[in-house]
Amino acid sequence: MIIHHPILGPRDAQEFVYLGDASLIDRPDGMTAGVEEFHDYLYQRTNPAGEHQELWYHEQGDRSWLVVTRNTVTHEITKVELARDVARARGRTK
């Protein structure tokens, strides 16, 4: 597969390490959330057959975490963003 890195252009997916669903960005705050919320966050997956937002780490590259929108049936990639930008857009701070 080839991932079109937003900064570096097309890169072989072999350079990346895959983590999983991009919902892993949405970590609850441990001071306010309990086991139930953390359980849903860490373990439950929508696991769609189709468009999937997922986290890839450019380990053999610029060490950016990316949010890749990829179809899990065709493997077509329609969007690649820096995870940091996505995280900020989702309101994550310090």
Binding site: G20, D21, Y43, Q44, R45, T46, N47, A49, T72
Partner: peptide, 18 residues
């Protein structure tokens, strides 16, 4: 491999990835 698809018919999310 279709667990998530089929169980979605019952409104369930699973601790599973395909």
């Amino acid at each position: 491999g279709s667990s998530s698809k089929v169980m979605a018919h019952a409104g369930m999310r699973l601790p599973i990835e395909s």
